[in-house]
Structure formats: structure tokens, C-alpha cells
Amino acid sequence: MADSTTAPARRSDFAQGLIWMALSMTAFIGMSVGSREMAETLSIRQVLFFRALVGLFVILAVGRSLFPEVRRAAQLRLHLARNVIHFTAQYFWTIGVVLLPLASVFALEFTMPIWVTLFAWLLLRERLTGPRLLATVGGFIGVMVIVRPGIGMVDPAAALVLIAAAGYGLSLILVKRLTQHCSPGAIVVWMILIQLPLGLLAALTDWRPVAVTDVPWMVVAGVGALAAHYCQAQALRRLDASILIPIDFLRVPMAAVVGYYFYAEAIDLWVFLGGGIILLSNFQAVMAERRKAAVAAR
């Protein structure tokens, strides 16, 4: 029989992890909208740089309490590895956006949860349970239904997007490992400190004039990126990566709804069908984990 004090704590962590993940997905959508608006006049490399620059200002304004922890430079090598991998993945993904149809890019990018499940098993020794595998496969099928990729996926640039997806997956696993030693806030601070100079070097190779009208979208993208990664680290601190990451598939129907209302992009039956598959596969995984937690609490 489980300790009566640990069972409620376990249930609380489970609920909090799902809430933090929902907040993370919402923030990622906000970051995407801000980035898309900036990309109308600026280069993608500038978008990456200004997102990090806004994040630095936010940290200086509200995150000074994190500075003592950051100065200790705990797990510095792991921070460096995680952020170099993450930044490189963003760069490869950007090349794919330029060279491939967006439907193909999204389909390839959302192989990421499969990579997360694999890396979680290899590096974190997380168990590959049936519900987690079903949620991952079901989510991927749902995304394929929504985007219905065509022959564009055979383009050689697709390999770069696959590398980016694997990079995102490995980056998330490294975040999960970092949460064992560092606070989510410190993880985000190190992300800004490492990726800001990387973004500046990249932006200088494709610099375009910056207008005052770009500033509000810089704020939206920068704050959204900061909040998304912070919430994601909070979620990963509470639950296994292979539980949380399949839920990230829900960003596809969420983005479709945002695109419909903000950009008048077409939304059809396939979006709702794919979204339903995603919801059902994740619902069964969440309920299975809750049943397991309830049994352990008895």
C-alpha cells in the first residue's frame, strides 16, 4: 500500500504537469504568431535573434532572483549541449520551411515525439508502456490526417527537417535531465545566454532593416518563447517525457484554429478528424496513467 501522503502528491504532480504542458502549448502558439508576423519583413535568422533578445530583457526585469543559481554554473556542459542542439535544430527546420511545402515540414517535424520516446527509453530509462506507445502512434497518425503530406516529402531537404525533429527530441530529453539538477527558471536563463550570441552571429549574415512596427511582434514572440520553455520545463519536472510529449501533437489543431481566425486559412473536416484521433489517443494514455497512479495509491 502506498504512503497516504505520497499518493495525493503524485496525483497533484500529474494534474500540474498537464496544466503546465497546456500553458506551454498556448505559449508556443503565441510565439509562432509573433514569429510569423516578424518574418513578413525580417529574415528568419533575425527572428531567432530578436526572440532571444526580448527574453534577455524579460529575465533582467523579473528573473534576478535566479542569478545566484546561474552563477554556480551547475551542469554547464549539459546546458551547452542542449542549447547547441536546440539552436541547430531550429536552423535546419528553417531551411526546410524555405525549401519544402509547409504540409511536409509539419508532418516531418511531428515525428519528434517518436524521437522523444526513443531517447527517453535510451537515456532516461523510462518504460515504454503500451498506452504511451499508442498515444505517440495515434498522435502521429492524427497529424498525418491533418496535413496529408504528398510527394514533397521525398525532397532531399526533408532529411534536414528529420534531423531537426530528432534534435528537438534530444533537446527535450536533456531538459528533462537538467530538471533533476536545476530549476526551470535557470534552464530558461541559460537558454537565452547561450542562444542569444548564436542568434546574433546568424542574424548578421542576413540582416534587414528593422521597423518600429516589428517591435510589438518581437515582444509577443520573445515572451511567448520564454514562457513556452519555462512551462515545458515545469511540466517535465513533474511527469515523464514520454507521457507529456505526445500531448504536444495538439498544437497542430490548435494552430489550425488560430490560422483560421487570424489569417483566414482554410480549415476543413480533416483537421477535426485528425484532432479527434489525437485527442482520443492522448485521452486513453492519460486515463491509463491515472488508473496506474490510483492502483499505486491503494
Rank of each mutant, 00 (worst) to 15 (best):
L42K: 07
L56V: 03
R251F: 08
Y260F: 15
G224C: 03
F49P: 02
G222D: 06
I95L: 15
G142K: 02
R45Q: 14
V84H: 03
P149N: 04
V70A: 09
A297Q: 11
Q180S: 13
L60S: 09
M191G: 11
A166M: 11
V84G: 03
R238I: 03
L226Y: 05
I278T: 06
V188T: 15
D3C: 09
Y261H: 14
I245G: 01
L226D: 03
R72H: 09
R208N: 07
A9W: 03
I44W: 06
L236K: 01
G150P: 00
G96N: 03
P246D: 10
A264W: 07
Q180Y: 13
F106C: 12
L250M: 14
D13V: 05
T26D: 07
H181G: 06
G17W: 02
L160Q: 03
I245P: 01
F106H: 09
L170V: 03
A61D: 11
L170W: 01
I192V: 15
A293T: 08
E40R: 14
F249Q: 14
V295N: 12
L42N: 14
L172S: 03
F140C: 09
S24W: 04
V145Q: 06
L196F: 05
V33C: 14
R64V: 13
I192C: 11
F283K: 08
L122F: 00
A227H: 01
Q75N: 09
Q75A: 10
Q46A: 12
E126I: 00
L201M: 15
A61G: 12
W217T: 12
G142E: 04
A233I: 02
V33H: 12
F119M: 02
F50S: 07
F110E: 01
A73N: 09
P184D: 02
W190S: 05
V145T: 13
I163S: 00
L133C: 12
V145L: 13
E265A: 13
I277V: 15
P246W: 02
G30F: 11
I141R: 05
V62W: 15
L60H: 08
E126D: 09
R177K: 13
